[in-house]
């Protein structure tokens, strides 16, 4: 019984040692990343190489990390929080835990892609699409607007992920564009069409590929990832019309904590995420839309109205009103 106790002590001591070493030269930036390691680590490595700032990352689910930061309060080790969805940054913003980012960083993206108060900046965009299995459904059959999915011919054919953040963000966007009444009616129509509910986008795309369900509302890049792993994967993205609410772009957000004592390094990191190299990586490797001005999306990505959506939708409010969105989804009978 002595051996394990010793082991615990030595690892604890080793842990402290690491911290001291790291703080030596250009400083350290501690990141809580809702984006998984596979989809961002090369960029962190490049940042460390370029700036000499060492990077420490805790990976996890965006919502869980936001809750952890809230629990940690002023003592949070995190300098930067990267969220996969507006909901989690919105949560921390409402609690007043986020610092304002400098104007030159915010200015790297178009007006609609950062918070009005500067508390976060979008660094990639994800477009909503309708994924479908070409062996089960003809593309010509698919509608140009997401609103048509409530028509009777779609009964028992659609998959949605009502408890997933991306679907909730999309519904919130719909509320801003079409109003609560129209949105509630649409949700009810989807529920009445016996939509299948799944846990998340990945599960929907997998089920479409297996032929378990015909079409599903998801973020655009899941199909590309599935195809990268398995070229015979039986799913394709269908794009609604460019100006349709079904094609809305949801951003992933970078933010810095007020409690951070490494704000300088934090800003450096966020700026780096919006430089061409990182933006190109997100476009080419993870198939997302670059948001920084001057970086073109990868060729495989369909056109989006990156500037246009901002006119109608206050993207930075997406985070604030998610609770009523959730209630509307539940009241329509879509949860479960």
């Amino acid at each position: 019984m002595i051996a394990p106790a010793t082991l615990v002590l030595t690892t604890a001591v080793a842990g402290c040692g690491d911290d001291n070493d790291a703080a030596a030269d250009s400083g350290t930036v501690t990141i809580y990343s809702g984006r998984t390691q596979n989809l961002i680590e090369p960029i962190f490595d490049r940042f460390a190489e370029e700036t000499g700032i060492s990077v420490e990352v805790r990976y996890g689910d965006s919502a869980d990390l936001a809750l952890l930061i809230d629990e940690e309060g002023d003592q949070s080790p995190a300098d930067v929080f990267l969220s996969q969805s507006p909901g989690s940054v919105g949560f921390l913003d409402q609690k007043g835990m986020l610092a304002s980012l400098p104007d030159d960083v915010l200015g790297l993206v178009a007006e609609g892609f950062h918070a009005g108060d500067g508390s976060w900046v979008g660094f990639t965009g994800r477009k909503r699409v309708l994924a479908f299995n070409p062996e089960l459904t003809e593309e010509s059959e698919l509608p140009t607007t997401v609103l048509d999915l409530v028509k009777p011919e779609w009964k028992g054919r659609i998959a949605v992920a009502p408890s997933n953040g991306s679907f909730q963000d999309f519904v919130t966007a719909m509320r801003f564009k079409l109003g609560d009444d129209a949105t509630a009616k649409w949700l009810k129509g989807i529920a009445d069409n016996d939509a299948f509910t799944f846990a998340n986008n990945g599960a929907i795309v997998a089920a479409i590929g297996r032929g378990e369900v015909e079409v599903g509302l998801v973020n655009h890049y899941y199909v590309y990832q599935a195809l990268a792993e398995d070229p015979e994967f039986a799913a394709i993205n269908h794009n609604f019309a460019v100006d349709d609410i079904g094609s809305v772009v949801i951003v992933t957000g970078a933010s810095m904590l007020k409690s951070s004592d490494g704000q300088e390094q934090g800003v450096e990191l966020i700026r780096f995420l919006l430089q061409e190299e990182a933006q190109r990586y997100f476009s080419d490797q993870t198939f997302e839309y670059p948001l920084a001005a001057g970086v073109e999306p990868a060729g495989v990505l369909p056109d989006v109205e990156l500037g246009g959506s901002a006119e109608d939708i206050e993207l930075d409010q997406l985070g604030g009103d998610l609770q009523s969105t959730r209630e509307m989804i539940r009241d329509a009978g879509l949860e479960g």
């Binding site: 501690t30 596979n38 990352v57 080790p77 990832q225």
Partner: peptide, 25 residues
């Protein structure tokens, strides 16, 4: 995920990461 020292990975966190991104292989 939330409490481990930063940088410590277990097999399960690796499975989760891959799974989360749809890297089924």
């Amino acid at each position: 995920l939330l409490l481990a020292p930063i940088g410590l990975q277990t097999l399960t966190t690796r499975v989760w990461t891959a799974f989360e991104d749809g890297f089924l292989a």
